[in-house]
Simulated scan of single mutants.
Amino acid sequence: MNNHAVFSFFSGSGFLDLGFENSDFDIAFVNELNPDFMKAYKYSREHLGKEAPRFGYHENSIDDFLAAEEKSLKDRVTTAKTLYQTVGFIGGPPCPDFSVGGKNKGREGENGRLSKSYIDTIINNKPDWFLFENVKGLWRTTKHREFYEQLKHELSSAGYEITDRLVNSLEFGAPQDRQRILMFGVLKTRKLSIQNFNWEQQMKFPGNMALNFQWPSKDCFQGTPTQTDAPEELTINWWFNKNNVETHPNGTDYFTPRAGLAKFEVIEEGDDSKKSYKRLHRNRYSPTAAYGNNEVHLHPWLARRISAAEALAIQSLPKEFVLPPTMTLSAKFKTIGNGVPYLLAVGMAKTIDDFLQGK
């Protein structure tokens, strides 16, 4: 048995959880409200040969655990603390209310309120440590930053030492320019100095290193693509090959438009300047994997949208990770876009483990 138990909230289809599990953490408890995502979570685990969580799957709102009469979660946490060296909570509450391109309702929005619910769940159940993930708008937007600082104050008052950082998935080697705010906290009673938490310990390209390579800009569609001297592991094409996207079970899962095909044939390779209809460049990283709100990502050299298999590769998932064939295309792309890049999850899991072990 591993040293650390993880209680996962807003689990989606399990990208963040898989990174922790493959870094020697036990996923002991899973909570996800969306039934499509929960089915995909279970399907992918079975496909990967993973055991079911010790304390089960829970398809309900996190608010249910905050009800006065609800004690099942606290009982499970108490039991887990007798079985493991530490117990941690991980989760990224839905973030459209804090996203610059989203609803921007902040704490008053339905999704914004769930961030407070997650923090209250941490405070009520006192895991040894926690990880909170959200969009950069919660960090950078003035009106949202006030709310974020309030959450940090409540956690500190409840006995947690806290550290946070705005990270980019490129720093961990995922081929995607995706910024997220991460907050890590540990109970003061664990007697671990938060000053020893090294955010860059598992980063391959810390800071702006990945962005500062000489990347190709735009090339004629189906012409000769510009090469790059940047690490190929940060390029889309390298990941497409690595994950065998053409033969992947989700390789033919993509939207076929009823009209607008002409537009697919004129947008240059690498032209991602518009909000919609971005064509990826094979020798560059992808923009943020966001496939809703009319944001259409086109295949670098084919006149079509990218497939679910290609989107999973952009999220740096192992090629063995598969979404169920019965899942709708909309649900597939929504859960992929919502997920935490796998390599970022692995990097954070190893960083947290090193910190907890006093390395």
Rank of each mutant, 00 (worst) to 15 (best):
Y285V: 04
Y285L: 03
S286T: 10
P287S: 07
T288N: 08
A289P: 07
Y291P: 06
G292A: 12
N293V: 11
N293G: 14
N293S: 13
N294W: 06
E295S: 08
H297R: 13
H297W: 08
L298Y: 11
H299M: 04
P300I: 05
W301A: 05
L302S: 14
L302G: 12
A303V: 09
A303W: 13
R304F: 08
R305S: 13
R305L: 14
R305T: 14
R305D: 13
I306Q: 05
S307E: 09
S307Y: 07
A308R: 13
E310N: 05
A311T: 05
L312K: 01
L312A: 01
L312W: 00
A313Q: 02
S316A: 06
S316V: 02
S316L: 01
L317V: 00
P318C: 02
E320P: 03
V322F: 04
V322T: 07
L323P: 01
P324L: 11
P324H: 14
P324A: 15
P324S: 10
P325N: 15
M327P: 08
M327L: 15
T328K: 15
T328F: 15
S330R: 08
A331M: 14
K332H: 14
K332Q: 15
F333L: 08
K334S: 09
K334H: 15
T335M: 02
T335K: 02
G339T: 01
